[in-house]
């Protein structure tokens, strides 16, 4: 009896120590698991306004004014410059369409980088909306493409180049899968994202057959000198960690009547952008006179992004003047 009593008190002391050790090491583990919180800067959690903000479509004029002012303040705090941020609405009687002439494109990637400069993407890690695929002549098999080509000069012999970006599909899978309608199509045919509403589930990224969506896995690496102050709510305002983004036909430019950055920088004039509802626009004429096709027609996404070849294809070997070696890799 005494034995067992002794045992009992021993055990209770021991079990007390034991559970104490358990609890304190558990607390320690819990505390260190919260370590990332130490890295938070005062402004990181955003303010309460952005937290309780409504979905873009449910915001009133004054709500939007308020949101724009908040974003402008945020940007100023983060990048020490006052952005010119607006909320441009779709224009009446306008539906944007892109057309790309594959017999002109030489794969120089100027569009890729002009896009990055225009749209405030993260520079490191790199986020780019346009991907230029290099493909051997005579195939349209994307599995055979390479977007990491690094050559002394382009175009390489017997290859052609196919830039791919968001196709602004009429029947957009990304819009359908979004569980919270953070991405939707507007009247001018552009699929937009409310970055404040996106929860980062990346369903849309998985659903897109053109790999057009990009996810901010980390806090975007954008520095003050790279910020483009001409911003629009649904397009190129700075994003944050954990949201999806993609090409939006440069809404901050196109809804103000200008051309997308990728179009204006293209040195070959392969890129064409315009309003299909206007029968005199270049894109309408291309759709009428050229043999256009869309990528992955079989998935029935009805893209607003068309590719075409001119009659002369394949191109004659380009001038050998700047191409001692074709940079064959």
């Amino acid at each position: 009896m005494t034995d067992s009593e002794n045992n009992g008190s021993n055990q209770s002391r021991r079990s007390f120590l034991r559970s104490g050790l358990l609890a304190s090491s558990g607390m320690l583990a819990l505390a260190t698991s919260l370590k990332p919180l130490l890295d938070l800067e005062p402004g990181d959690l955003g303010n309460i306004d952005s937290f309780i903000q409504k979905h873009y479509c449910e915001m009133s004029e004054s709500d939007i004014e308020k949101a724009l002012a908040r974003i402008a303040d945020d940007v100023e705090k983060r990048y020490q410059l006052r952005p010119d941020i607006r909320d441009l609405k779709p224009l009446d009687g306008v539906e944007f369409v892109y057309a790309l002439n594959l017999s002109r494109c030489i794969g120089c990637r100027k569009c890729v980088h002009a896009c990055v400069a225009e749209n405030n993407q993260s520079r490191s890690p790199e986020i780019q909306y346009i991907r230029v695929l290099e493909m051997p002549h005579g195939t349209l098999d994307i599995e055979k493409s390479n977007h990491h080509y690094n050559r002394a000069s382009v175009p390489a012999d017997s290859h052609y180049y196919m830039p791919v970006q968001c196709h602004q599909c009429k029947n957009a899978p990304c819009v359908k899968v979004c569980p919270i309608q953070a991405t939707w199509q507007q009247d001018d045919g552009v699929t937009v994202i409310d970055y404040d509403w996106c929860i980062g589930c990346r369903y849309c990224q998985a659903a897109c057959p053109y790999w057009a969506r990009r996810f901010n896995f980390t806090e975007p690496g954008l520095t003050k000198k790279d910020v483009n102050p001409n911003m629009n709510y649904l397009s190129n305002r700075p994003r944050k960690k954990g949201v999806i983004e993609k090409c939006h036909f440069c809404l901050q430019r196109t809804r103000a009547g200008k051309l997308p950055a990728c179009q204006e920088v293209c040195p070959t004039g392969a890129r064409k952008f315009g309003n299909v509802l206007d029968e005199h626009s270049n894109v309408s004429q291309i759709l009428r006179t050229k043999r256009v096709f869309v990528l992955k027609e079989d998935v029935n996404t009805l893209p607003r992004f068309f590719y075409y070849f001119d009659e002369r294809y394949p191109r004659k070997q380009a001038s050998s003047e700047t191409s001692k070696d074709g940079g064959s890799a």
């Binding site: 120089c108 990637r109 991907r131 977007h147 690094n150 002394a152 000069s153």
Partner: peptide
């Protein structure tokens, strides 16, 4: 004939949903 040119740097990211 249109001259060849040096392409700008290739993408340096894994987060583009590698097609191939």
């Amino acid at each position: 004939a249109y001259l060849r040119m040096k392409p700008l740097p290739s993408p340096h990211t894994l987060r583009m949903g590698e097609p191939s």
